[in-house]
Design a protein around this nucleic acid. Sequence first.
DNA 1: TTGTAGGCGTTATCAC
DNA 2: GTGATAACGCCTACAA
Lengths: 341, 341
Amino acid sequence: MRPTTKDLAQAAGVSLATVDRVLNGRPGVRKKTVDAVNNAIQKIGFERNQVAATLARKRGYRFGFVLPKEGDEFLDEIMERIREIQRAGRAEMMSVKTIRIDEQDPHKAAASLSRLKTEDFDGIAIMAPETPQIRDAILRMRERGILTIPFISNQQNDENDVFVGIDNRAAGATAGRLMGRFVCAQQGVVAVITDTVQARDSLERRLGFDDVINHDFANLRVLPTLETYADPERTQRIIRTIMASQPDLVGIYMMGSEARVPLEMLSQFRTDEDLVTIAHEKTPSTVAALRDRKLDALVAQNPGHLVRSAVRILRAKCENRPTLASQEKTRIEILIADNLY
Amino acid sequence: MRPTTKDLAQAAGVSLATVDRVLNGRPGVRKKTVDAVNNAIQKIGFERNQVAATLARKRGYRFGFVLPKEGDEFLDEIMERIREIQRAGRAEMMSVKTIRIDEQDPHKAAASLSRLKTEDFDGIAIMAPETPQIRDAILRMRERGILTIPFISNQQNDENDVFVGIDNRAAGATAGRLMGRFVCAQQGVVAVITDTVQARDSLERRLGFDDVINHDFANLRVLPTLETYADPERTQRIIRTIMASQPDLVGIYMMGSEARVPLEMLSQFRTDEDLVTIAHEKTPSTVAALRDRKLDALVAQNPGHLVRSAVRILRAKCENRPTLASQEKTRIEILIADNLY
DNA sequence: TTGTAGGCGTTATCAC
DNA sequence: GTGATAACGCCTACAA
């Protein structure tokens, strides 16, 4: 039988309460006693039973996801996965809530974060742009004792802490290599479209993309990034212009997470089967485009994985135990028509 | 506060013990009482607390993985992931064991399965070739009351039951499309190498591969599958012959899960940068080959995911609750040099 | 600084 | 058939 806290208390010659204090790093125990307990842990090979520990805490774990108020299809997927885990989590004594913030207004957003109280949350996963106000708000949350982890959009990797999301530079590189391999032309020009290059994510993807193209595909020339500002009309204009002005166009890289609008516009123009198109994220639009051969490949991060990984990491932090590193590294998925599952 | 069994007992006008009997489908309760409890469940929105339930069962969950005795690098990865979950599982009241069977000898293998007792296992994930003896042994295990699920190698999908592993036909199709897209030649010949075409997995991959090539890449001709029987010398001979006899060779598809030997042999010959090579499974050998540009792409199933998914499914079955379908579908991963993480 | 006792929401073992 | 009641292993008052 596995040793229990009772065995441990006996082995260390202390009471259950003291064992609990040491186990959970609570104050009010003499160093000597702490050592005695720790030695006993080693000696009898004690390992805490998380199931019992969770049950004994009256309240379960309460986690939150901070998400932008306005979002694209990718965000819809994320929210659907959060809903899934909400349902499944109840039986495991875990509740998950979402908090929407106004991404456009850093002050409002920061204020929303400030309102999150320690009494309501054990940990929060935060998807938010990198602004001074938000960074401060996050720091203050931590001081209040709420665990936080960056979610999908990285907050400049402040401490070499965990981060749930993909390496965007590698994602861009992946897109770059697929573009290079799929284009069979001797020479050609590649266009890059995104909503805005403001975000760090876009910058990193572009860097990765260029790295690969410049290094391994000298036959291709990549044009400056075109910004749509998520405006359909502007998007249409951009695509029309690029198609008309670049006779050597062989590929289009849709770099943002909102490929729906560019794809719609593109489908009005694309007649040339040799134009290679690559986008990000698996959404209803991109999946349909992949099936219809309007898109050649998708570079994606799995929304379900992101959400579950965030929750697992927060929970592990709460319980003060390590996570399986191999499980929590977010994979850069490549999707084509045949592995869409 | 969430309703507990106590609340439920009160609402149904019965005792805790009866509630438990109904909840766990145990016999010895009048139909009328069962209905009363079920109605009360609906009425008060009761949902069982799995944490408490797990704790209250004296023993935790005991699962097993049946694996072949002899294996390749892919199997090593699987075992490493099982070890990981063994460590992590203890705190969650779950133990995981592996049982190695002699794949070459169906009778011995079946005998090994027969030895697995209900007292020792709540559920077993089985990776085994599809032979009458093994099929029977599995059926008998089920009759004994042990939950079983096919693992990686499918047992002809007997009941439309769960299956942990990839759709091999889709995996072959994925390899086919990558081959078609990566080969830029006007015309060419593609070779297919595997250990043996005995296994259903190989057949299905080949079907998927051919589907795509025939349908979408008329410029390519796929040669009959070459079998290495996992013999290095034979592999070398095969590769030498194919390189010499097929001047139009533009691609090699290593269809089995053991790409190490073919890759080694290939590296002795490959000088032509235009030869596209695609293999299966992420292992030290294939990863190194991908990095060294000796391999262009990998079609893989994630070993960690496979193992954890099997455990989650077994556990859910034990606890008589559903799984997250989106999480348990094994993805067909495409790996290139840039998304190897 | 340390210990005692009661409780978390189930399951299991007895009686009736 | 059904109902009390004692575990399960840990946490948390409150007492000493």
